[in-house]
Simulated scan of single mutants.
Amino acid sequence: MRHSDALPTMVNEPSRQRGIGAKSKPGKLKSTMIRLKNDKHLYVLMAPYMVLFFLFTVLPVVLSVLISFTYFNMLEFPRWAGWSNYTRLLLDDDVFLIALKNTIIFAVITGPISYIACFVFAWLINELRPKARALMTLVFYGPSISGNIYFIWQIMFSGDSYGIVNGFLMRFGFINEPILWFQNPQYTLGIIIVVQLWLSLGTSFLAFIAGLQTVDKTLFEAGAMDGIRNRWQELWYITLPSMRPQLMFGAVIQITSSLAVAEVAMNLAGFPSVQYSAHTVVTHLIDYGTLRFEMGYASAIATVLFIIMLGTNLIVQKLLSKVGE
């Protein structure tokens, strides 16, 4: 009798569990609606930014991806072209492959070096007194906001004997005649890399300075009690984990600037450069987008660059998440 009484209870137990599960979903939905209602003023404040972000960031990216599958010359209505733009880009466009190679070389060299340099200089300057820190910050940040900075480098690497570099090398007997720096593919990319590194202490540098200022000083005292004995341990276990938002922001900025280089190459090496020695993905995009008006093909170039940037950012984000472990 007891066994028969227990049997219905055991049989009905799954149904009760299903009933509980079924009720939990409306409960979650209700709690979400209540939370949205309670925080509606926050969403109202966020609405202007979200509208602008959607109109000027999300929507252009989506439209660019869609246009990349069409033939569009700005005069006729876009015609569907399927994967032909990407096939042409990756299989038939030799200049794009040169631009992709130059961009990867440029990014692999300038990206990590400039990122580390931004943090190292910010870390060293942060140790100075406030007035000296402000002065040194301006000195290091100045080149990135100056106006006609390329004029200086054009004088330095001028192709005649009056160029500073040529004059120095000829005076000390390293060369016998001037070198045409920007007309020789052997030197062009290297010079542009040096100039970009000189310009790299920009927004990321300021972000790191700000991040170092916000590190809680009491963490260093707690770390000393937990066994941290030197500045390198403080840097790895306290400073860097406390600066993860700034580190991630700086990584995004440096990745974007290193993969989207164009202005330096165009101003110093010309457009197009000799034998496409300084040709990058962005200059290739400018060529087809603003000169030839092949907007479908230009959108395909932009989409490939966007995928490369997105993938690189995701990899860097995973690496930065392990800082301090």
Rank of each mutant, 00 (worst) to 15 (best):
Y288A: 04
L268D: 14
A278P: 15
N184V: 01
I152K: 03
L52G: 11
S273F: 13
I253A: 06
E294T: 00
R229E: 15
L206T: 08
V304G: 04
F72K: 05
F56T: 14
M10N: 04
R18F: 14
K23W: 14
F140P: 11
P14A: 01
V11F: 12
V195P: 03
D39A: 03
Y150R: 00
W236L: 05
I286E: 13
M295V: 09
L219F: 10
I238H: 05
Y43H: 06
Y141G: 10
I175M: 03
Q213P: 06
I179Q: 02
I286W: 12
S204M: 03
F119G: 04
E177M: 01
P78Q: 02
L305S: 09
Q154F: 08
Q17R: 09
L212Y: 08
L206P: 14
P8T: 04
S277G: 12
F77M: 08
Q254H: 12
F56Y: 14
M136V: 05
V61H: 03
L52I: 11
L285I: 09
Y187K: 00
I155H: 10
S24E: 09
R16H: 07
S158I: 02
P112M: 02
A99Q: 10
Y297H: 04
K40F: 15
A210Q: 07
G159P: 15
F106H: 06
S277Q: 11
A262E: 08
K131T: 15
S114Y: 03
G190E: 02
